[in-house]
Write a protein that binds this DNA or RNA. Sequence first.
DNA 1: GTGTTTGCAAAGTGTTTGCAATTTA
DNA 2: TAAATTGCAAACACTTTGCAAACAC
Lengths: 132, 132
Amino acid sequence: MRPFSKVFERLKSAGLRPTRQRLALGKLLFENGDRHLTAEKLHTEALNEEIRVSLATVYNTLHQFTEAGLLREIVVDSSRSYFDTNTTNHHHFFIEETGDLHDIPADQVNLSDLPPAPEGREIKRVDIVVRV
Amino acid sequence: MRPFSKVFERLKSAGLRPTRQRLALGKLLFENGDRHLTAEKLHTEALNEEIRVSLATVYNTLHQFTEAGLLREIVVDSSRSYFDTNTTNHHHFFIEETGDLHDIPADQVNLSDLPPAPEGREIKRVDIVVRV
DNA sequence: GTGTTTGCAAAGTGTTTGCAATTTA
DNA sequence: TAAATTGCAAACACTTTGCAAACAC
C-alpha cells in the first residue's frame, strides 16, 4: 500500500490512524466517485476484493468516518443505514424498488419559505428525499 | 363502545373489521388531533388506558391502517418507524434530541425546479425533513 | 512499550412471523 | 360456522458491545 495515498492523508488529517482496514475501506469509498453504501454492501465489496475485515469493523469505521466528516449518513429506509461519500449539501432520489440512491445537487432544487425552527432550536440540516 | 363512532365508520369504509383492538387503537390515533407515533409509544399508551393489546397487533394494525390510507409512514430515524395520522401532503421538523416530529404544512414551503425522475420512473412522494 | 484498533461472538433493538385460540359477521 | 384477527413466543435483520489479541507509532 502506497504510504502517501490520498486516503492515507485524508485519514491522518481527520485524526484517524491509517490502519490496514481503514485504508482499504477508505479506498473503496473515496476512490470510486460519489457512493451510497450500506455497511453490509461495503463489507461484501471488501471481501470480494480480498480485504479481510469484519462486519463490526465496517460499522465502526463508517461511524468514525462520519464523525470525522468524511461521510454523511442518509436516512431513507427505516431498516438500514446508508452512508454517502458526498458530504456537501445535496439531496436524493431514492429508488424504493432497488434501494439505490442518486444525488440531486443542491443547486438543482429551489427550496424557499421554510417556516422558522420551533422555539429555541436551530436548523441543522434539510433533507429532501424524492421517492421514485 | 359506541357502535357508530367516527372510528367505527372509518374502519368499515376502509374495509377493516372494527375489532376491539382496532377501534381502541384507532381512537387513540384519530381522536387526538394530528399525531406522530412509533409502535412502541402507541402500545404503551394503549396499556396505560387499560386497553389489552399485544405489541404484534399494534404493528399489524399500524401497517393495515397505512395500507388502507388512514396513516402514513415517516422515515426520519434509521432505527424506528413513525406513523403520522396526517395523510395529506406535508413535511416535518424532526427534533433529534427528543425524537419528536412537527408538521410543516405543504403550503408553508416553496419547492420548485426539482430535476426529472431517473429514466422510466415517476415521483411517488417528496419528503422534506428539517432536522433541528 | 503504550495506547489504539480489530475480530469475534454475544447481546441488543425494533420488527415480523407461525400458529393455535379467539372473535367477528 | 367460516373466515378474519389476535397473542404469544420464536425468529429475524441490522447494529452495537465487551474483551482479548494484534497492530501502529
